[in-house]
Amino acid sequence: MASSNKPPVLLDIAEVSKSFGAVNVLRSVSLTVDKGEVVTIIGPSGSGKTTLLRCVNFLESYDSGSIRIDGKEVGFRPGPARDSGARQRRSERDLASMRAETGMVFQGFNLFPHLTAAGNIMLGLTKVRGKSSAEARSIAEHWLGRVGLGHKADSLPAELSGGQQQRVGIARAVAMEPKILLLDEITSALDPELVGEVLAVVRSLAEDGMTMVMVTHEMAFARDASSRIVFMADGGVSAVGPPKEVLAAETTNERLRAFLARFRASHF
């Protein structure tokens, strides 16, 4: 068959809308991400990038549309036929096991302050994956080694630099072996000289074939590391395509051109 070389769709976002009161944060957003793809979402603040990402692991609910990972709807299940199958929010237990299939790295790191670097990684492995603490410890050490922090396993977050904390955050997410990794402006809270070490880790994960969706303002990184770039504006997908197309200076998309121009002016 002709389509046999195409990797399967892993994440399928279909016509997702969401509003906070009178504000439409997401307006019928549709986007699919194939297995192994790295998709970067860019756009002005308030365009709904982070909200969209948070809908993917249901940290935020959405009003309509559907989000499926591996064909399975994330936050809702079909209701009973007598309610004409109206969707129902999954139970908290169900949601927890769905969320274990996605990993997320946050802008503010969000490490658990009372646990060591290794402890942060082990918590999900022992409590969610049911691994023994010895097994979890060796997985944690493996991933800490991968992000260059093998020697910091027993350090508390407060004893680590921002870049180190964020690398622990990445290790914590990937150690769970998620199907997809969500990266929410993970370098925005870092001092400029620490950005590189974090992006290097992301790059190596991409090389391993990890499926990723990331929101970032690092345009150069987005251009180099992404399979596709999505430009969001006013809660909708305004442009999507390979980095070279979307970031081209001669784009006919007015919003995108204005965004890129402003970006170049402030970042170079």
Binding site: L59, E92, A96, S97, E101, F112, L123, V128, A173
Partner: peptide, 26 residues
Amino acid sequence: PRGQLDAGKAIGLTPWQRLIHVRLPT
């Protein structure tokens, strides 16, 4: 901080586990 609860959710902890392992210690 809400971010810590988000992190607990994101790794798949149930509400009870989030209470015991994230919320109460903090």
